[in-house]
Nucleic acid binder design. Structure first.
Lengths: 210, 210
DNA sequence: TGCTTAGTGTGACCTTCGTCACCTACCGGC
DNA sequence: GCCGGTAGGTGACGAAGGTCACACTAAGCA
């Protein structure tokens, strides 16, 4: 890792905190599609994203998964904070969408820094806050919206996060992430294509107008 | 309020913090079924529950609501923390289930105390944590489970929280809280009665075995 | 070039759930 | 005891979405 990555990604942290992270954190790299954490795993550290992009999923016992939100560089996994602090198993799955570098902070430091660095405690709080709101909006969608709206929202998120109008993804994958089935997604996408909202290609969806 | 209520409900707080809460917090009382906060409202304070019981709902634009979780004495509303801190409108609705007393802490104190009192910052963090987990479990239910399982889970929660096997509630209310319709709930309850899991009365449900 | 395979399109069918209509049972007040 | 209001029961129907079967097609490769 470049020495400048931490100040770059976490500019709000005090100099000493940035140094401590540099010295005490453990850097780990993941390739595209690699899992950062598995459902059922225990944590002994929390993770800050340095580079790349991470997707967070919820999984149930039968292996059904579905997409909750993205984590960008400069963000942290709120769940790893929860689980680390409570010594609980992870109830989520995290997957690298691009090649990703994270830095792992051991639990005891996380607690220590809460008292020591104001910017750290502020960071932890605002991480919870942001993820909390994501969850609320997720709940809204699955509780109140139909699959058509959810699909459209999903594509929009994907588009914004990846900053591209050409999403290279297949229907099956979308179905998994929305906890639906391929046929349903195919049909809805077809309908959206007829409305001129997008154009379908093999292994790719071109967003026209959402 | 009894002078002893705050130490009783929040024994983990430092003495000085308890005193500050006593002096600076504003106590408010709500009758059963009264709303503590409405969707769309702005916050300038966060609320700690002293006595009673509070239900937290999510509402969408069309007025559909549904139940997320209970708040007991000694707990705080994580949402009011989020909203207060971000100067955002509330996206939830809170209703007193029993006669309830809360104490409102102005936003600026909330921030000040984060730095000043370790027990306060720990309290705020663990409030987020606890609510975060509730939300995750809520998501699981609406994403992966059918209405039958959700109903059973709802009754179980209700039973545990109220510490009684005789729930005085009607079908319409349950339907609202699960964002379903009375007929569906009635049918499912009937089926559960046939399985011997409960006994139906007018305005009441007697839990036998869930 | 032809074969293979993953990705996609589509019709038929089923289940779950929401909605409508209407009925019955119970409770409280007069 | 009658009456009106509220809670609950039930059948009919429709929409959304999951499942199954199978056809089609672009890419990749031998």
């Amino acid at each position: 890792m470049e020495l400048s990555t931490i100040p770059l990604r976490f500019p709000a942290f005090e100099k000493e905190l940035q140094l401590e992270i540099q010295e005490q954190g453990e850097i780990r790299a993941f390739k595209t599609d690699e899992q950062l954490m598995r459902t059922g795993q225990y944590f002994r550290s929390t993770m800050l994203i340095l580079n790349g992009l991470v997707k967070i999923y919820r999984e149930d016992e039968d292996g059904n998964e579905f997409f909750m939100y993205y984590l960008q560089p400069g963000q942290a996994c709120a769940l790893s904070m929860v689980c680390a602090a409570e010594h609980k198993r992870s109830a989520i799955m995290a997957k690298a969408v691009k090649d990703t570098e994270i830095i792992a902070i051991p639990l005891h430091l996380m607690e220590e820094w809460m008292a020591k660095y104001k910017s750290w405690s502020y960071f932890v709080i605002s991480t919870y806050r942001a993820r909390f709101e994501e969850l609320l909006s997720t709940i809204d969608h699955i509780a109140f919206r139909g699959m058509d709206e959810r699909l459209e929202f999903y594509l929009k998120k994907h588009q914004e996060t990846m900053r591209t109008n050409l999403l290279t993804i297949n229907h099956q994958e979308i179905a998994n992430e929305l906890n639906s089935s391929r046929e349903v997604i195919s049909r809805l996408l077809k309908k959206m294509e007829q409305f001129g909202k997008l154009k379908l290609h093999r292994n790719a969806i071109e967003i026209i107008q959402l």
